[in-house]
Design a binder for these strands. Structure first.
Lengths: 136, 136
DNA sequence: CCGAACTTGCAACAGGGTTGCAGAATATTT
DNA sequence: AAATATTCTGCAACCCTGTTGCAAGTTCGG
């Protein structure tokens, strides 16, 4: 409980029940969540718009990051140390085609790629789709 | 002109002006296109829905493939030899943060990744964001 | 406990994407 | 070349995602 408040405080955000609930939902379920997932979990307590705004705020403050997906955007907790200034995400995302869950593989880094002359890469996003250990 | 018809024929599709126009738009502009791009280019001639359905059909037949993007889905021509049965896409996509264009880097394959035990990968999707040669 | 600053809910909107159906166009058969 | 079956298209309507403006409510520092 206090941990939630601390996390918010560290990122210079006021503690509100919506933010605490969204944050704890991310912590409890461990996979990447879409706005729809959160609305399903918390929609009776909070307005759609508030959840959107909470996600946007968390994104800006470096609490969560975007996860690309072939059927829409999801969000997942940043491991540590992301802030408003710098996001550091070079890990791999895995989407299971059986259970539909998308997860961060925090330990696996995206391998280096030798780009042709002239390309100046800044961000990397690797999504692997397949079957996860639970469904295998 | 005839090339367009042939492509459609190979994939067992009837030749219609909409399909020819969509296909030639993909061929002329070489980057990945969103539905909105196509609507901008062809919207006066064809209904929104028809363009959506054309994209869906092309996807199913293996003429185009999805390109993930942090701000929405795009589509790009399949290099060769994709069909209804098998899609083969392990190349890299590069999105320029300056001009906004997304392109396939057909020649660059996604490097192999050693996944933990139990993961059974099927498809790979790597998006690199940065500045492209034209904007550098 | 007061006021400034920030958050929330509501209403309204814009855009992306889908479905059902009737009419039009295409391909096929004769 | 005409008739037929099949497939496409346009229209209307709809749902979902995401955003904005504004008034009312909440948080936090003094």
């Amino acid at each position: 409980m206090d941990q939630l408040r601390d996390t918010l405080k560290v990122h210079h955000l006021r503690t509100t029940t919506c933010r605490e609930d969204v944050l704890s939902t991310f912590i409890n379920r461990k996979n990447a969540l879409s706005h729809g997932d959160l609305e399903g979990a918390l929609g009776e307590n909070y307005d759609r718009v508030t959840i959107y705004r909470t996600l946007k705020t968390f994104l800006e403050k470096g609490i969560i990051h975007k996860v690309l997906d072939d059927e829409g955007l999801r969000y997942a907790l940043c491991s540590h140390s992301c802030s408003e200034e710098k996001h550091q995400h070079d890990h791999i995302h895995f989407k299971c085609s059986a259970c539909g869950e998308t997860n961060c593989l925090e330990n696996l880094h995206i391998p280096a790629v030798q780009l042709p002359e002239g390309y100046n890469p800044e961000h990397f996003n690797l999504l692997i789709q397949g079957v996860c250990p639970k469904c295998n």
